[in-house]
Design a protein around this nucleic acid. Structure first.
Lengths: 119, 119
DNA sequence: CTACAACTTAGAGCCAACTCTAAGTCAAGT
DNA sequence: ACTTGACTTAGAGTTGGCTCTAAGTTGTAG
């Protein structure tokens, strides 16, 4: 598919898609006869994973490192697994922290609702 | 306390403390005879709350809006409560999303550990 | 055959949130 | 009196992650 379809499918702008390719997150994107990028379903799956890492707080630099390991094939599986384990651990900690944050916010909301009742 | 003690207490750099004051997050910070900022324990509590909002994804612009309502006194309690309720709702949704993300990452890790076993 | 939309590139611009620099003031210690 | 070091300011610079511009090429419809 062309960049327009791909950007619709991934919900990235075409600008961002080109940016990701330029910085090395998207590798081996083929071109058609007139030099336009041609994306596959597999590229969509890969972007979905990039987004998951990004949305869980991994900087693009970290995702790039993963992408480079991935490009080198199966021999880097262990390294990639290690990266994901470290990341998952941080994510778990972050979720716990956010649950505490939520609780504290809810306490403050309760405090406000008491203030308002008295007003 | 002076800016150094305050930055240690809040774990913000002195640069960031000044930046927060300049942009309006920190209001009514008094000065000593030589023009240096003088912070109180209450300022530490307030920064802790700023950090909670920030760490849960509220942009400084939003926190600034809250700070301005807060400065106007008790009459804005309801507005502030509304802000916190909206924010807490988004946070709750985000936690749910991150829990799903974590699950998916863990599945991928399991997949990797199978790949490695076979290798 | 020409208009027009969609693509291409390199590189500039933008935004949030800091982070630092330069030039200056001030208080405390020797 | 002088050095040292912490503070002050306005404003410039940095970083991450896009977002856009300009100039050019290509494919399709009228």
């Amino acid at each position: 598919m062309n960049i327009k379809k791909f950007s619709e499918a991934t919900k990235l702008t075409a600008y961002t898609v080109r940016y990701y390719e330029k910085m090395g997150l998207l590798k081996n994107i083929s071109r058609n006869s007139s030099g336009h990028r041609w994306f596959t379903e597999q590229d969509i799956v890969w972007v979905a994973f990039i987004k998951r890492l990004k949305d869980t707080g991994m900087p693009l630099e970290g995702i790039l490192k993963y992408a480079e390991l991935r490009e080198q094939g199966i021999s880097t599986s262990e390294q990639r697994m290690k990266m994901l384990q470290d990341h998952a651990l941080k994510l778990e900690e972050n979720i716990t922290e956010q649950q505490l944050n939520l609780k504290k916010l809810q306490q403050k909301i309760t405090y406000y609702s008491d203030v308002i009742k008295v007003q």
